[in-house]
Structure formats: structure tokens, C-alpha cells
């Protein structure tokens, strides 16, 4: 008698529990879908994000698809590492689930990250950061090497100026060193300068390793300097200069892809295990090739 009742109650209980579970699962799923839009904060290192418009579009696309909300944060002073760390602290305290950063100084940013009371995965753009949840960047050494090889093809004698603004952009260092190695091996003398010099005796070749510097150099060239410029970047301004011949060749990769991958990685770091990221593929684009179909797709975002 007693046993029968227990069996019955167990069976009914199990059935009831199954009903409840099947009813609750959609509820839980819905809660997860709606309730938890991940909040991802994006820390730039510029005072405005006009250099990062395409990157932002990629990020927004990823956020849209993966259920995240983005907060874009700029610095009040360009490349202010302290301010970036302060922003990092504020965002993590403000409840950011993940961070995407273009680090001013990866090491000190990492130190700031470790000082946080809460753990917050951080994906970096442009350069790798130790302890980060991943870096979305091309292989910086390969960028330097390929760009130097592009220069080698055109080289007709003279010294090469390597514009070194690595103080502002940490990824420049490895690109520059790689380029320097390639050039030295080819027996070309090169000089590192922080800014373009006033005197232009025999310096007909200039290499820049960062979009901002590339654009600046291109502008200077338009102002009357004459030199062949090899740079980095894919913004509209740079492609315009490339088309007009102010820039001989650029190493370009898709900012859109970078933004997308960064947010995707950040979301993945929160929701699942972060995957190891492949370095972004980049290509060397010369001025005359910019309208090749593949380069069109790379350089020009589809905005209707």
C-alpha cells in the first residue's frame, strides 16, 4: 500500500517536474536572450573616434548579432595612458561585462586590469596585451616586413626614414623593427625619426607604421614635400591619398573585420571560452591596384 503510493507520487512528481521544466526552459532562454544584453565598453586612445568609424561599424554589427551593447569611450587627451586606466576602472565598476581597448600602453593597462576587484575580460585592438582575452591585430612583424619588401621593389637609392611614433602607438615598435631588419639585410641605410625633418637632402623614402602617422605624412607630402610614402591604414583619407599618389603603398586590413572580431571575441570571452585568434590578414595595396575587386572589398566599406 505504502509502496504503491510512493511509486505513484514519484511517477507523478517526475512527470510534473518534466512539465515544469519544459515550461521553464523557454522562460529561461527568453530571459537569457533579452535580459542579458552584454555590456561591452570600448576604450579608444584618441580624443574622438573619427579614425575608427569603420571599426565601430564592425563592432556594432557584431554587437547587434551577438546581443551586446557597446559603450564607446574616448580620451580627453590623446594617448593618455593614465586616463585610459581610469576609464577602465570606471567601466568595470560601472558593470561592463567585457572590454575592448586600443591600448595606449599595454603593460600599464594590464597592470590596471589586474588591480580591478572584478575580473573583466579585455580584448585589445592593434597590439597584443599579455593577460588579455585576445588581441585583434595583424601580425605586426609581418606588416613591417611586407611593407619593407614593397619599398624594396621600388627602391632606387637613398636613405629610408622610419617614422617612429611608438610612444603613442605601441604596435609601431614591432612593425618598425621588422621593417628595419628587412631593409638592413638589403643593405639600405635607414634612420628612425620621431617626426619628418625639415631638411630633405636625400631622404626620398618614408615609412610610417600607423594610420594616423601615415595620414599626417601624406598631408605633409601634399604640402610640398616630395618623397615616396609607405604606410599603414585603410581609412578613406588614406585611400584617397593612395589613389592620388601621395602614398605609394599601404599595408591594409579590414577595420570592419577587426571591430567585428574584437567584439565577437569579447562576447565569447564572457559567454564561453575565448578562442585563440588568428592574426588579421592584411595585404599590401599599391595606389594603382586600389580598384582591383579584392582591394575594393577591403578598402571601401559598403554603405549605401
Amino acid at each position: 500500500m505504502k509502496k504503491n503510493n510512493i511509486v505513484e507520487i514519484v511517477i507523478l512528481g517526475v512527470l510534473g517536474a518534466l512539465v515544469v521544466i519544459t515550461l521553464l526552459i523557454p522562460q529561461l532562454l527568453r530571459d537569457r536572450e533579452n535580459g542579458s544584453l552584454l555590456s561591452v565598453s570600448v576604450l579608444f586612445r584618441d580624443t574622438d573616434s573619427s579614425n575608427w568609424i569603420i571599426t565601430r561599424q564592425g563592432m556594432e554589427q557584431a554587437a547587434d548579432e551577438l546581443g551586446a551593447e557597446l559603450r564607446f569611450l574616448n580620451l580627453t587627451v590623446q594617448n593618455d595612458s593614465r586616463e585610459q586606466e581610469e576609464l577602465l576602472r570606471r567601466e568595470s565598476e560601472g558593470g561592463a561585462d567585457a572590454l575592448v581597448a586600443v591600448p595606449v600602453d599595454p603593460e600599464s593597462l594590464y597592470m590596471a586590469l589586474t588591480r580591478l576587484s572584478t575580473s573583466c575580460p579585455m580584448v585589445t585592438l592593434e597590439c597584443a596585451m599579455e593577460g588579455g582575452a585576445g588581441a585583434v591585430a595583424p601580425d605586426n612583424r609581418a606588416v613591417g616586413q611586407e611593407l619593407a619588401r614593397a619599398l624594396l621593389e621600388d627602391w632606387s637609392g637613398g636613405q629610408v626614414v622610419l617614422l617612429d611614433n611608438s610612444a603613442a602607438c605601441p604596435e609601431v615598435e614591432s612593425r618598425l623593427e621588422a621593417a628595419q631588419e628587412v631593409l638592413s639585410q638589403a643593405g639600405i641605410s635607414c634612420v628612425r625619426l620621431a617626426a619628418l625633418p625639415e631638411a630633405w637632402a636625400d631622404k626620398k623614402w618614408v615609412m610610417t607604421f600607423e594610420p594616423g602617422a601615415t595620414r599626417q605624412a601624406a598631408d605633409q607630402k601634399e604640402d610640398g614635400y616630395s618623397f615616396a610614402l609607405y604606410g599603414v591604414g585603410s581609412s578613406t583619407a588614406i585611400t584617397t591619398s593612395l589613389e592620388q599618389g601621395s602614398i605609394a603603398a599601404v599595408a591594409a586590413w579590414s577595420d570592419y573585420a577587426a571591430g567585428y572580431l574584437a567584439v565577437e571575441q569579447a562576447v565569447r570571452a564572457v559567454r564561453q571560452r575565448p578562442q585563440d585568434l588568428e592574426p588579421l590578414t592584411f595585404s599590401i595595396v599599391r595606389g594603382e591596384d586600389i580598384y582591383a575587386p579584392e582591394n575594393q572589398k577591403l578598402l571601401f566599406p559598403v554603405t549605401s
Binding site: V20, L24, Q27, D31, N34, G35, S36
Partner: peptide, 23 residues
């Protein structure tokens, strides 16, 4: 009595499942 209570709880859940929740 047990069974009745179980059934009642289930019925309530069935009804409540149709409602939503916000964040």
C-alpha cells in the same frame, strides 16, 4: 491531497508560463 496540490501547482505554472518578464 498530494496529487491535487501537484496538479494545482502545475496548472498555475502552465498559466504563468504564458506571461513574460522584463529586465
Amino acid at each position: 491531497l498530494h496529487l491535487n496540490v501537484l496538479a494545482a501547482i502545475l496548472a498555475m505554472l502552465l498559466l504563468s508560463a504564458c506571461g513574460g518578464s522584463g529586465s
